[in-house]
Amino acid sequence: MAKPVGIYVKPGSSKENKTGSWRTERPIFKHDTCTDCRICVMVCPDGAVFGSNYIYDPDYDYCKGCGICAQECPVDDIEMVPEVR
C-alpha cells in the first residue's frame, strides 16, 4: 500500500498561536452609536470581531491592533488607545 505523502495537520489549529501579543494599539468598542452595520466584522483581516445585536467586541487574544475597524466605522464608535501591559 502506498504511503501517504506530505504533512497533515488539524484544521484551524493556528488558534494555538495567540497573535494578540503583537498589538501596539488596542481598539475599544464604545457601544454608544453602534448601528449594527457589521462593517467592523467584515473588514477585520483576522476575523476577530464577535458579538450580536449592537454589542460587538474584538477577541483580544487574537486582535493584532491594525485599526482598520476604527478607520472604517461609519459612526466612529471605535477608538484606538495605546496598549499598556
Partner: peptide, 15 residues
C-alpha cells in the same frame, strides 16, 4: 457573528 473559516491566529502582518 460566527467564526471565520480562515481561523484566527494566522501570521499575516498587521492590517
Amino acid at each position: 457573528v460566527e467564526e471565520s473559516l480562515l481561523a484566527m491566529g494566522h501570521r499575516a502582518c498587521t492590517g
